[in-house]
Design a protein around this nucleic acid. Structure first.
Length: 478
RNA sequence: GGCCGUAUGCCCGAGGGGUCAAGGGCUCAGUCUGCAAAACUGAUGCUGGUCGGUUCGACUCCGACUGCGGCCUCCA
């Protein structure tokens, strides 16, 4: 049994066979950094992070490229409006993006190339396309270069679009196209555009078209042919369609599997900056949901299904995650916590979990396996069955680790409060002693008062057969 | 107009042609507990958008319809 993935090109689930045994090259379309990311963007990153971790777990050497589009119409427009160079706006957003990725536990890519750093590669591709008759410089002297859609017979294969059935685009300003469906490879500089947004080219100063950058960067970092190309469903057409077209026309075999994830909707339509129906990580955290809980929320449904964002569903996901987390914490308190993996040998994963993940990354089913095992673990915990607990705990953590959700991974387990932690510990210990004394003399009112006061301070006390245990509630709570 | 996708209980969300339709949340009851919390156990769907068809048998396959969403213009 091995990984099977849904491939958009063939519209079917196919067994994943890497081009070179033992290695996988993945290209994920990252963001156009025109503004800070919303959680739809983060879903993209999390979905691919799960794929990547699953491949790593399977023993592949994974080269993961995720690009940054740091020049485009909107970036330019916004930067002009703000009176700053486009690159400063792009970079500011890029840094926020990197921070949000990191806070969600998304592994850094192998490399994160920027569009503006690959203009020479784009020129090479464009020149080849012109030479071979697939592209042409506009006849109006604008400096634009267009891809000639009619010259590439397979155009429309990825998206299932038939060029003759496509709605004519209201291509107002796009002048000298031979066919309305042709798309820009290179955009000649317009007089009112900032000089810093111009690069010299054989066709005059200008800047890259949107699609060509990805073809150039795939080629540069993954070679003429690579394993997996991905992005959101909304990129299938025209972005990915155009990418394949120009890459294949230029003689590059390009991606072997196309993996697209579902979008995240809010209020009945996809979350989008342009529509303003956007929620971002800080907003989620302000509602009392931690980053790891958001990750659970984003990773639990199948990656190809649409998520209709709702605060209720997010809270439910957070509760579900806390159940898993609670077991891991209590189990670790009982039997100690050796790291599940990274010790030469990883614990064998539950076969049902493996089967679910191999089946086009069915994280829902995989998590059901985790929950089942946690129930068993909780029962063992209640019975103080150390043997069972120490068998189950590493299994649970190993599975959660594949999903980037192991509560004890350094990513999530950093204790809040830093150096004040010790102070809090001794103060709580003091309070608990008083409560223990009150309980000993059956003064329940006094005992409960202590518990209530701690609770008000954000510290939750629970009595267990092994004595009271306490945890710090979410920050800012109550 | 064209191309995709989707429709599951109070909510989120999987499955597989034929044992009880995963798992989580919520609610209720029970166990444990001084109480609480956590945990565990049990309960909650004559029904799977609608209508047809295929089949011995479909929620699961096919078709139509309806609703919703995505794309055809920048978009994860």
């Amino acid at each position: 049994m091995s990984l099977r993935l849904y491939d958009t090109m063939t519209r079917s689930v196919r067994e994943f066979v890497p081009r070179v045994p033992g290695t996988v090259g993945i290209y994920l379309c990252g963001l156009t950094v025109q503004s800070p990311p919303h959680i739809g963007h983060l879903r993209s990153a999390v979905n691919y992070d799960v794929l990547r971790r699953w491949l790593l777990h399977a023993g592949y050497q994974v080269t993961f490229i995720r690009n940054i589009t740091d020049i485009d119409d909107k970036i330019l427009e916004k930067s002009v409006a703000a009176g700053v160079p486009f690159w400063s706006l792009a970079y500011a957003n890029e840094r926020i993006l990197a921070d949000h990725y990191a806070r969600l536990g998304v592994l850094p890519p192998t490399y994160e190339p920027r569009a503006t750093g690959h203009v020479p590669e784009m020129h090479q591709l464009i020149e080849k396309l012109i030479e071979d008759g697939y592209a042409y410089p506009a006849a109006d002297g604008s400096g634009d270069v267009y891809f000639d859609v009619t010259k590439f017979e397979a155009y429309g294969q990825l998206s299932g679009q038939r060029p003759d059935h496509m709605q004519a685009s209201p291509d107002g300003p796009d002048r000298a196209k031979r066919d309305p469906r042709d798309f820009a490879l290179w955009k000649g500089a317009k007089p009112d555009e900032p000089v810093e947004a111009r690069w010299p080219s054989p066709w005059g100063p200008g800047r890259p078209g949107w699609h060509i950058e990805c073809s150039a960067m795939c080629w540069r970092y993954l070679g003429p042919e690579f394993d997996i190309h991905g992005g959101g469903m909304d990129l299938v057409f025209p972005h990915h369609e155009n990418e394949v077209a120009q890459s294949r026309a230029a003689g590059l075999p390009f991606a072997r599997y196309w993996v697209h994830h579902g979008l995240l909707n809010l209020g009945g339509s996809k979350m989008s900056k342009t529509d303003g129906n956007v929620i971002d990580l800080p907003a989620v955290e302000a509602s009392g949901v931690r980053a790891v809980e958001l990750r659970y929320y984003l990773a639990a449904p199948h990656y190809r299904s649409v998520i209709d964002f709702s605060d209720d569903a997010l809270q439910e996901a957070a509760a579900a995650y806390r159940r898993l987390e609670g077991f891991v914490q209590r189990a670790t308190e009982l039997v100690g916590g050796a790291s599940p993996a990274r010790k030469g040998r990883k614990p064998a994963l539950n076969p049902a979990f493996v089967a679910a993940m191999d089946d086009d990354l069915n994280t829902s089913r995989a998590l059901a396996v985790v929950h089942d095992l946690v129930r068993e673990g909780n029962a063992a915990l209640a019975a103080a069955d150390k043997g069972a607990v120490s068998r189950i705990l590493p299994e649970v953590r190993a599975m959660l680790d594949v999903l980037g959700l192991d509560p004890l991974s350094p990513q999530w387990s950093q204790s809040r409060g830093g150096e004040l932690r010790g102070v809090v510990e001794s103060l709580v210990a003091l309070a608990l002693e008083q409560r223990a004394a009150a309980r000993a003399r059956k003064d329940w009112a006094a005992a409960d008062a202590v518990r209530d006061q701690l609770k008000a301070a954000g510290i939750v006390v629970e009595d267990t057969p092994a004595g009271p245990r306490w945890t710090v509630e979410k920050p800012g709570g109550a």
